[in-house]
Each structure stands twice: as C-alpha cells, then as structure tokens.
C-alpha cells in the first residue's frame, strides 16, 4: 500500500511522470498494434456472419469499442479535471488536455461508423435515436473543453483550470443529458432502432474480437495520451531544468526520441 502511494505521488510530479511513463510508450504501442491486428483479422474474417445483418454487422468491432472509449475517456477527463482544479496538479492538467482530443476523435469515429452502419440497416445515415443523439452531445462537450482551452492561449495554466471546470460541469451534466435524451426518444419514437439488437451478441466467436478490439483501443489511448501529456508537460514546463535534462539526455539515447 505504501509503495502504491509513493508511486502515485511520484506520478504527480512532472519530471518523474515524464521519466516513468517514457518506459511505457513503446510497450503500449506494440500491444495496441498487435491487439488491433488480431482483433480486426479475427472480427473481419473468422467471426461468423450475423443471421440477420449479414456481414455489415462487422463494423461493430470498430464502432462499439470506439463508443466505449468515447465515454471512458470523458470519465477520465472529468476525474483528472477534478484533480487539476482542486489540487492544481500539473500532471492532471496534462492528462486531461491530452485525453480530450483523443476522446473527441473516438466520439467522431463512433458517430461516423454509426452512420455507415445505419445506411444498410435503417436505410438512412442518421437517425435521432437516443444513443446517436447523446453521442453527438458528448462531442459538443469535448469541443467545449477544447474551445475554452484554446481561447486562453496566452496563459496555459489558467486555460487548463478553466477547461477543468468545464469538464467537471460536463461530467455532472452528462448523466442528466443522457437520461433526458433516452427519456425523450422513449416518448417520441416508441420503436427506436437498437444497433445491438435485442438479443445482443452471445456467440463467443463474435464476442472475442470485440473484447480484443476494446483492449486494443485502451492500449492505443494510453500510448497516445501519454505522448500528448508528455509534450504538454515539456511545453508548459519549458523553463524548468528537468526539461532541458530530459531533452538533451534523449538526444544521446536515440531510442526515446522517436516517441515525441
């Protein structure tokens, strides 16, 4: 327990965060690539056809993991936002601002793949069903956090604190928004089309690639987030000594240079 606490405190200081996470970048990237390749090949070639949707259901191996990530990352944004706002942790600011664009991208991927799937399934690219609508609103929340951050470009720390505040407000509101949107569709469109179908996926051969892809997106997120968080810290801490040391040290040790 003590060691865990010590580790946590170490992660809270920018230099040790930078040092520790530098070792994680490569393994995470390799894991992400392996899992993605395995998941896609398994999902696209070996998983059985759906008896109703044929081959077109296979987009869920991208769509569903992306949808999970879009919400998972917002939770991380909100939690690191709380840490950034309450304790003014620079690392939390970096993690938050690094996560936001990745989350926004996953949200966009979810929406786009949802639309592509919608065309063969419902005959339309867009349907104002509860999931798609709340996903769209989630995208607006991400855009809001990014917008307030970039509006204060002359003072990145103030910008990060305000962005954290926006993220926290979003986190509080997200359940209300989702509830209201689901409630709204239940009233206005009795027969909302469910992408997953009522039965859900029961076949292990279908579930397996889905879970593998879910892990792949997590690894990718960790890798990408750490890269971004590191460069965020390098930028905001550029006057500090550790940045100079880290960067000159890296030039000698070429294995690290490529990750930035």
């Amino acid at each position: 327990m003590n060691r865990l606490l010590k580790f946590y405190h170490e992660l809270g200081s920018p230099p040790s965060f930078y040092r520790i996470t530098s070792h994680w970048l490569k393994p995470m990237l390799i894991l992400a690539i392996i899992f993605t390749l395995y998941g896609l090949i398994d999902g696209l070639f070996f998983a059985p056809e759906d008896y109703q949707q044929g081959d077109s259901y296979r987009i869920i191996f991208v769509h569903v993991p992306a949808a999970w990530m879009s919400m998972f990352i917002y939770a991380i944004v909100g939690i690191s936002g709380i840490m950034a706002f309450v304790w003014r942790m620079k690392v939390a600011e970096a993690v938050m601002m690094a996560s936001v664009p990745i989350g926004a991208i996953f949200t966009t991927i979810t929406l786009l793949t949802g639309m592509l799937w919608g065309k063969p399934m419902w005959g339309t690219y867009w349907d104002w069903d509860a999931r798609m609508t709340s996903e769209l609103i989630l995208l607006f929340l991400y855009i809001g956090v990014m917008g307030i951050y970039s509006a204060y470009d002359e003072d990145p720390r103030k910008a990060a604190r305000l962005a954290a505040l926006v993220a926290i407000i979003g986190l509080i509101n997200l359940p209300i928004i989702r509830y209201s949107v689901y409630w709204w569709t239940s009233i206005h469109q009795g027969s909302s089309v469910s992408l997953m179908g009522e039965s859900g996926i029961k076949d292990w051969a279908m579930l397996r690639p889905l879970l593998v892809m879910a892990l792949a997106t997590k690894f990718y997120y960790i890798h990408s987030m750490l890269c971004r968080a590191q460069s965020h810290l390098l930028k905001t801490e550029q006057d500090k000594n550790w940045v100079k040391l880290a960067l000159t040290g890296e030039r000698k040790d070429k294995t690290q240079g490529g990750n930035l």
């Binding site: 929340l141 509006a151 204060y152 305000l162 979003g170 509830y179 209201s180 949107v181």
Partner: peptide, 27 residues
C-alpha cells in the same frame, strides 16, 4: 464567467451552454 476575458466569446459561450441546456429544452 468562463468567457469573461475572451474577445468574441459569444460562439464559445453557445458551445459551452447548449449541451447543458438540451435537457431543459427536451422537458
């Protein structure tokens, strides 16, 4: 309060506020 010293913050304000107001509009 969030956009108090941003020039032309009106658009940003809409982006920040609209998602929060969507439940109000629905109800």
């Amino acid at each position: 309060a969030l956009i108090v010293n941003i020039k032309n913050g009106g658009m940003l304000l809409s982006v920040l506020i609209m998602p929060l107001l969507s439940p109000v509009l629905i109800f």
